[in-house]
Amino acid sequence: MIIQNKRIFASILFVLISFVCAAQGADPGPPPPLPPPPVGTPLPIDGGILLGMFFALFYGIKKSVVLRKQ
């Protein structure tokens, strides 16, 4: 392709992409936040937190055993 054809092709792509971007609907935004739980209701601890604490404890014990051997 010669340079003139590349410029025309790039211009057409730019215009088409602009139309696609303008055709997108307006974002309605995030949903409204949920109301807070009633007072006195305990909040659950996710399993990921407990699993992370287990691995951190395991890693700490392993690290201290390796350092004592040195």
Rank of each mutant, 00 (worst) to 15 (best):
P33R: 00
I17S: 13
M53C: 10
K62Q: 07
G47K: 01
A10V: 00
L34N: 13
I49Y: 09
P35A: 09
G40H: 05
Q4D: 08
S18P: 01
L50V: 13
Q24D: 10
F54Q: 07
P28L: 02
V15C: 06
Q24K: 06
I8Y: 03
G25T: 14
F55D: 04
P28W: 04
P42Y: 00
D27I: 04
G29M: 00
G60V: 01
L57I: 13
P38N: 13
L43H: 08
F55R: 08
M53E: 06
P33D: 08
K6D: 15
P37V: 06
G40T: 04
Q24S: 14
D46C: 10
A23Y: 03
F19A: 06
G40N: 05
F14I: 08
D27A: 09
F14A: 15
I49T: 12
L43M: 14
I12Q: 07
Y59S: 12
A56R: 07
N5D: 14
F14Q: 13
V39Q: 15
P38D: 10
I12R: 06
T41K: 05
P33S: 03
G40Q: 09
F14S: 13
L34G: 12
F14G: 09
P37L: 08
K6V: 15
P37Q: 05
P35I: 06
L13M: 11
I12M: 02
L50H: 08
A23E: 03
G40P: 00
A23R: 03
L51G: 12
I45E: 07
D46E: 14
I12D: 09
S18I: 07
P30E: 07
P30Y: 03
V15L: 12
G47S: 12
Q24L: 15
S11D: 13
L50R: 12
F58I: 02
F9K: 04
T41L: 11
F58W: 07
Y59P: 00
K62P: 00
L57H: 01
G25D: 14
F55Y: 06
A56N: 05
A10Y: 05
D46K: 10
P30G: 04
L13P: 02
F9E: 08
A10Q: 09
I12H: 01
Y59H: 12
G52S: 10
F9L: 06
G48F: 02
G48P: 01
A26C: 11
G47I: 05
P42M: 02
G29F: 02
L57P: 06
I17H: 05
P30Q: 04
I17E: 10
G47L: 03
Q4A: 13
L51S: 14
F54I: 03
Q4F: 12
I17G: 11
F58C: 08
L57W: 09
A22R: 00
L51T: 14
I8T: 11
S18D: 12
K63I: 10
V15T: 12
G60T: 02
Q4C: 11
I49C: 06
L16M: 12
M53L: 15
G60S: 10
L50Y: 06
L57R: 06
I45F: 02
G48M: 01
Q24C: 15
C21G: 10
P35E: 10
A26L: 04
G25A: 15
P32N: 07
I8M: 11
P32V: 12
G47M: 00
L34Y: 07
L34P: 14
P38Y: 05
I8E: 12
F55C: 08
